[in-house]
Nucleic acid binder design. Structure first.
Lengths: 108, 108
DNA sequence: TTTACACATAACTTGTTGGTTATGGAATCA
DNA sequence: TGATTCCATAACCAACAAGTTATGTGTAAA
């Protein structure tokens, strides 16, 4: 997992409006741009731009049907986020492991 | 967990430089501002500002000792991030549960 | 007690971002 | 075909964010 992929993910989720759209798709399932716009307080172009950012980060998928575009959440795109968190935990714990090792060696 | 707390957390982690500082503190343990500045490619005031943002989000703790300030990572500050991810998963799954319920009721 | 040091804050610059309105292209409907 | 609808993109603007240099404040050292 590269830094830049984490970057796109964290950046995409750092905006509350964008998170709200993603949450809507997670709980409500596939939605059209019009549907998402109706549920938001911002203009349709603004929603489209947010969707483009989410798509870029792999968080949503789009499906064209006639003149409508349906968007759906891609839950597995969140896994780098979990991976990163676990990595931090491992970093943290390894410090204590190192300390423990040191103490063991001093004990001998 | 309020939206605004998620906001501070995601915002704080959305910057790669800030994530790098946090990662350094996770893996290397407590560090002074000078130490962190030495490991970075940016100026000391820039580092101080990033640390202020991380502190605001609860991701780091500061400890004053003479004229130095020591910063350390607060790993548990990441838990709202895990909570949010699990919430998304639950949202997602509840949709299928709802569908299943509907099908069960139709079956009767 | 002056000087130097570690860090924070202020002031400023610049690139980015999140919103807007206007417009364009493709699909549907009359 | 012409009008309408759905969405994306363009052009623009205001606010913000991340960096810089300059300065301030408190502590240690000479």
């Amino acid at each position: 997992m590269t830094t830049s992929s984490h970057d796109a993910l964290f950046k995409a989720l750092s905006d509350p409006t964008r998170r709200a759209i993603f949450e809507t798709l997670c709980s409500g399932g596939e939605q059209t741009v019009g549907g998402l716009t109706a549920q938001s307080h911002i203009s349709q172009p603004a929603v489209s731009k947010h969707l483009a950012v989410l798509k870029q980060a792999g968080l949503v998928l789009d499906r064209h049907e006639g003149r409508q575009t349906h968007y759906s959440a891609q839950l597995q795109a969140l896994s780098p986020l979990l991976d990163w968190t676990h990595q931090m935990k491992r970093f943290w714990e390894s410090r204590f492991d190192d300390l423990e090792d040191l103490l063991k060696r001093m004990d001998q």
